[in-house]
Amino acid sequence: MQRDEIFAKVRDVLVESLAVDEDEVQSDARLTTDLGAESIDFLDIKFQLEQVFGFRVEEGELFPDNVAQDHEYVADGKLTDKGLAALKERLPHADFGELESDPRVAKVPEIFTVDAIVRFCETKLQAAG
């Protein structure tokens, strides 16, 4: 599947799930701050991507699961170096640019841009052959 086609399908999922207009779904748009996604929307998006693309997304594969509860990874509301490294390893599709300079846990959801979701789907589809 070509990247344009993947983008179009991801855009449709986000339009449906977040009730946003198509033109709001730009590559660099952040799911939370730009498109208004709340925590439950992440589960919705995951389910819809599974349905649309036919792959299975394991827990913590697309969005982080329990990083914030791990005392080794979080201190004083911020990700430790170890926590940041763990997240980067688990979520190679995400955009860590701003989180590296401001590693507050509250900022973690902002690492998910539309492009990150497209990258994730692209990798999953390639792995599935």
């Binding site: 925590s39 439950i40 992440f42 589960l43 919705d44 389910f47 982080p64 699961d65 329990n66 914030a68 509860q69």
Partner: peptide
């Protein structure tokens, strides 16, 4: 509909 399992919330 979409349902959440309350005890599995991301905030812990």
């Amino acid at each position: 509909l979409l349902f959440s399992h309350l005890d599995q919330n991301v905030a812990g």
